[in-house]
Amino acid sequence: MAGCRYALASMGQHDEEVMIRITQLHKTFNPGTVNEVHALRGVSLQMRAGEFVSLIGTNGSGKSTLLNGVAGTFLPDSGTVEIAGEDVSCRMDYQRARHVSRVFQNPFMGTAADMSVVENLHMAYLRGKRSYPKVGLTRERREVYREQVKLLEMQLEDRLDDVIGTLSGGQRQALTLLMAIISKPKVLLLDEHTAALDPKSAAQVIHLTRRFIAAQQLTTLVVTHSMQQALELGDRTVMMNKGEIIDDISREEKQHLTVNDLLDKFAELRKAERLTEDMLEALRREYL
């Protein structure tokens, strides 16, 4: 918990504009073993409220770790994570869930397979609230959920009592996305949430993602494997390598960029010796 003590000492003043402030985040997994991985090496990142940032990088670059660091699935070795001015470095994921919601890459991960569609939605509604032994899933709430499910345009409003396990991966992921925004979080984290879907479902989910984020002005961090997606989605694109942020492309810059420009950027970085030849090759393979 050294990181936690460190965190308390570095509490700064809150700027209303800043939703997420990550400062000098370090994380090593399995320290002192052969499996030791220095996943984050002093990452700092700020996101304004309502900003939509896409995160790219090769496998093992630390982009998912950074996302999980915001979600709170692990506690950092050192450095701080602030959300809406609140230092949450020492809070676990379930304690951050009131402000932060997540959509996972695996469409089976975000929903409880043996429970019905409404029960899953109700779980999402209970996010950040205490669950008491009272019947909260009333007839009125069901109608609310029915209306919300209609937004997905997947005819799920007729299947409210069906068990989630009987839905397709695309439907489950769309529902997970709906569940993520249903209780109006401050921060939305998307971890390659379309990577496991077929192209049609992926397009559907991306479409929904755009709509929901625009409607709720959510501060969003998305990890993606698609260069095209990185360029199209979001205001900023942040590139990571070996646990560090190596580039931060602003909205203005992005508007003039093509996929090829991005690759050129990679090449430039290589010249500056921040990317090795094989890293570049790996990036090419993954993103093209």
Binding site: M92, Y94, R98, A112, A113, M123, L126, S131, K134
Partner: peptide, 29 residues
Amino acid sequence: GLFFKTDLGISMRATGNNPIMAAAAGVDV
């Protein structure tokens, strides 16, 4: 039967069924 349908019951079932999802929904698993 009623207990399993309350908010607490639903949270409990979700925790057993998918602890990752439950944690993401703010349940101290």
